[in-house]
Design a protein around this nucleic acid. Sequence first.
DNA 1: CTTCTCACA
DNA 2: TGTGAGTA
Length: 126
Amino acid sequence: MKEKELRRSLAVLPIGTVMCLTDLTARQIRYYEKHELLKPERNPSNRRMYSLNDIDKLLEIKDYLAEGMNIAGIKEVYLKKAAKKKKVREQAISDEKVRKMLRDEFVNASGLKSQHEFSFKNTRIF
DNA sequence: CTTCTCACA
DNA sequence: TGTGAGTA
């Protein structure tokens, strides 16, 4: 379930295709990029190349705009979303450290001199 | 022919 | 946001 996400992130669509898929003008698509709502890649010829995720994002932007939200407002939505994801990542790293500490403490408390003597070394207890 | 940047009788 | 100019 991760190869799929990788493909969705591949920038393979030229702006013309994106225009058809989103019903937005090239002017609008570039305008949103200028306001950092999007970050399409560039091919060797300086042409913008979009991914399927970019298409979804543009469609999302179009909906927000239709609901009366402005560019600045949409930008804040994405900034907060990114902040939340960052916290989730930090929490995951934190949990990993806690597990390592508990494991080390357990191995040490059991009086084992090395992990080779730890009969459950390959078992995910923590 | 498509896309890019820039500018506005 | 539209559109035309001049490129690449």
